[in-house]
Each structure stands twice: as C-alpha cells, then as structure tokens.
Design a protein around this nucleic acid. Structure first.
Length: 119
DNA sequence: TTTCTTACA
DNA sequence: TGTAAGTA
C-alpha cells in the first residue's frame, strides 16, 4: 500500500512515517517509480512503534527491539528475544533517574518562586 | 494525482 | 512536524 493508505490506517502522518523509516523503524520496499510500498504487517508495526514510543523508549532502542515484539490481538507483547526484558528494565531505570532529576528541578523552582512571592 | 527529496519556519 | 518547491 502507498504511504497515504498507511497514514490513514494508523493515524500517523506521512511525514512521521518517513521519519520512522529514516530512523530504521520501518523498511518499506521501493516501487520502480520510487514510491514506498508498505506491507500489511506494517500497520501492526506502526502500532507497536507508537506503544514503545509512549513507553518513553528512544527510536534507536526501538529499532533494535521491534523484531522481538509480537502482536497479541492488538497488544504489543515483548518476548522472543533474550535480553529484551533486560533492555526494557534498563530503560525503566533511565526514566526513573530522569524523574529524580526533574523532581529536583521542581523543588528548586518552588524555592525560587516562594522567594519571588516574598519579594 | 500522488509521492519523492530537501530545506526552512 | 508542517509545508513549499520542482519532479517523475
């Protein structure tokens, strides 16, 4: 199918679909006219990409884990590849560290604001 | 008409 | 990400 069809079926813009390809997340074949030709399975792949993106994973990590995700009637299920669970936990720890930094910033900002109100 | 690439807001 | 330009 052409890019517009995939965009329509996934709700992801054509621009973003091309970006996903640039990031190595999708590999559509090329027609003789240069147009991208997406397989039916790409519809599911795009959903998985969105799910992984929502989980906060960077595209570079998703590119390496995508082929380990299998679809369980609409739900992306991380499995198959050994080490995938470890990668996900590693990402979760990275995000936890991020939260810690943000909370620190949040407290610092609160302190500045209270000082401003006092002035 | 639709898509492609590249570049800019 | 959206959009414009110039093609195929």
């Amino acid at each position: 199918m052409q890019i517009s069809a995939l965009a329509g079926r996934t709700g992801v813009s054509r621009r973003l679909l091309r970006y996903y390809e640039e990031q190595g997340l999708l590999k559509p074949v090329r027609l003789p006219n240069g147009y991208r030709d997406y397989a039916e399975s790409e519809v599911t792949t795009v959903r998985h990409i969105r799910a992984l993106l929502e989980a906060g994973l960077p595209t570079a990590v998703i590119a390496g884990l995508l082929h380990c995700v299998h679809d369980d009637d609409g739900r992306p299920v991380p499995s198959t590849c050994p080490g995938m669970v470890g990668d996900l936990r590693r990402e979760q720890r990275r995000i936890a560290a991020e939260i810690t930094r943000l909370e620190s910033s949040h407290r610092a900002l609160a302190t500045l604001l209270s000082a401003a109100e006092g002035a």
